[in-house]
């Protein structure tokens, strides 16, 4: 028997995700914890078991603070109503930051990409999280992505450039092409990230596709 209330908690955890809650979880608390952790990216059952065992050795120091932090994050973190970033406030701290250049919107596939760009400290504008890329085979169409909110942001005025920071895959390129076709008639400049030689990278170890892309994108120095 599952504890009363647990399925609701499950449903809340899965809210907004593309998959429904799983049919059942083990009843034993340790096994349930391992099963829950094991579903996270980067965790298999084996690493989940190691983490759980480690926590159980010092529940007061490792486990209860974690449980508190999880509860707090689950209750406090919300998607930003403007850009889709995850933050404890909406609008998120980036959208709320007066110093950010609102003429520039950087479009990313997911929040992980937004965080990566923030770490690089290269973008002084705001963001827009699409929540995926177009993929007919994975059932991701324009309606499944946050394209309409992006269009609304541009229609509201003030945006001069949309920077597409999308993955260099067939789906990423198709999404870029789609967005460029959709946004350019609105009078904004649409740009994409360059592809080529990585920092500190030697040419002879680079794959041919990247090298050819870098070659095409050569510039005067």
């Amino acid at each position: 028997m599952q504890e009363p209330g647990f399925p609701e908690a499950e449903a809340r955890l899965c809210q907004g995700m593309a998959f429904p809650p799983p049919p059942h979880l083990p009843n034993d608390p340790i096994e349930r914890l391992i099963a829950l952790l094991g579903r996270l990216p980067g965790y298999g059952r084996r690493s989940a078991r190691r983490a759980v065992l480690r926590m159980l050795t010092e529940p007061d120091r490792l486990m209860l603070p974690l449980a508190d932090a999880l509860t707090m994050a689950a209750e406090a973190v919300v998607p930003c109503a403007i850009c889709g970033n995850l933050d404890s406030q909406s609008p998120c701290h980036i959208c709320a930051d007066e110093r950010r250049d609102r003429h520039l919107i950087c479009v990313v596939e997911g929040v992980a990409d937004l965080w990566a760009l923030e770490r690089a400290n290269a973008h002084r504008g705001t963001y827009h999280v699409l929540g995926g890329v177009l993929s007919a085979l994975a059932g991701m169409g324009p309606e499944q992505l946050a394209i309409q909110p992006l269009v609304a942001r541009i229609e509201a005025g003030g945006v001069e450039e949309v920077i597409l920071a999308l993955p260099a895959t067939v789906d990423g390129a198709a999404t870029g092409h789609y967005l460029s076709d959709r946004l350019r008639p609105m009078g904004v400049r649409v740009t994409g990230l360059a592809q080529g030689v990585p920092m500190g990278g030697a040419l002879d170890v680079l794959d041919e596709g990247t090298l050819a892309a870098a070659w095409r994108a050569r510039r005067d120095i």
């Binding site: 177009l134 007919a136 169409g141 324009p142 067939v170 198709a174 092409h177 789609y178 076709d181 959709r182």
Partner: peptide, 26 residues
């Protein structure tokens, strides 16, 4: 890959011209 996606859209009767154009570009 791009062709398989275009085939899928056409088979499903989805005439999203922008999406099709993006795949045809690829």
């Amino acid at each position: 890959n791009a062709m398989a996606q275009r085939n899928r859209l056409l088979a499903e009767g989805r005439r999203d011209d922008r999406w099709l154009a993006a795949l045809e570009d690829a």
